[in-house]
């Protein structure tokens, strides 16, 4: 309970700061929109298969997330507020608060990216409900798997490239499965059961990594 209260305080603080500066949100969003525009421009309305659509949209989300998801911890390190946060909240609460913040950020970005992608790429979403569910699952998976990496990378130089590099192997299983799960929503017929199975696998993978992050985070966060 104490952890939840402290995590909520961390989340509130980060949201408030983000609403005032809009640094992370704008950088992720602009990057994502630019890459969607680039993809659509270079493909010039070529008809893609549902699986290709699913793969492209998740690649865009992954790299966009890689530009902005480090923000939470990097800013603490740069602004010299890390020790204040460490005094204020337990490592678990910090991790949970940052995770929820990243989740909110990703949800906001996906809410823009998916419609824009479908509009620019003429992708027809045949099952909007399934699409929304998979998108939400993806936001949970990406934030759940990479929040601890943000804290690691905050100690490094050339952070966003190291973040993308370290996040890719960790997220690869989840991304492969997300593509699998969202393909039916773009109209890849007959694989709905496969999609459900993939979604379940994403849930279990994210669950395992979140438990592991919870256990490892204190070792990374504290000195």
């Amino acid at each position: 309970m104490e952890v939840l209260r402290a995590a909520a305080a961390v989340l509130r603080k980060d949201l408030r700061g983000e609403l005032r500066t809009r640094y992370a949100l704008s950088s992720i969003l602009l990057f994502a929109l630019a890459s969607v525009a680039l993809v659509s421009f270079t493909l010039k309305g070529e008809a893609l298969t549902p699986r290709q659509h699913a793969a492209l949209v998740w690649v865009v989300v992954f790299f966009a997330a890689a530009t902005g998801l480090t923000r939470g911890f990097v800013q603490e390190a740069d602004a010299g507020t890390e020790l204040l946060l460490r005094q204020a909240a337990s490592p678990e609460a910090v991790w949970l608060g940052k995770l929820l913040f990243n989740l909110a950020l990703l949800a906001a970005v996906e809410a823009v990216i998916f419609p824009v992608y479908c509009g620019l790429m003429y992708a027809t979403v045949e099952q909007p409900a399934l699409m929304a569910a998979v998108a939400a699952l993806g936001a949970v998976a990406i934030s759940g798997c990479t929040t601890i990496l943000g804290a690691m990378v905050a100690r490094a130089r050339s952070r966003s490239s190291v973040f993308a590099l370290t996040a890719l192997p960790i997220l690869l299983p989840a991304l492969l499965l997300l593509v699998q799960a969202s393909a039916p929503a773009f109209g890849a017929g007959g694989t709905e059961a496969g999609g459900r199975e993939a979604a379940l696998a994403v849930v279990s993978y994210t669950g395992i990594l979140m438990v592991l992050s919870w256990l490892l985070f204190p070792a990374v966060w504290e000195e």
């Binding site: 104490e2 305080a9 509130r12 603080k13 602004a79 020790l83 204040l84 946060l85 005094q87 204020a88």
Partner: peptide, 29 residues
């Protein structure tokens, strides 16, 4: 139970003074 103030520990620049204190107290429970 312990609190440390040091020149290397900064408050959050984007929050107001009241918000900084409120955050610190809330998070500490």
């Amino acid at each position: 139970r312990v609190a440390l103030a040091a020149p290397a520990i900064n408050p959050y620049a984007h929050l107001t003074l009241a918000e900084n204190i409120r955050f610190f107290l809330h998070a500490r429970g």
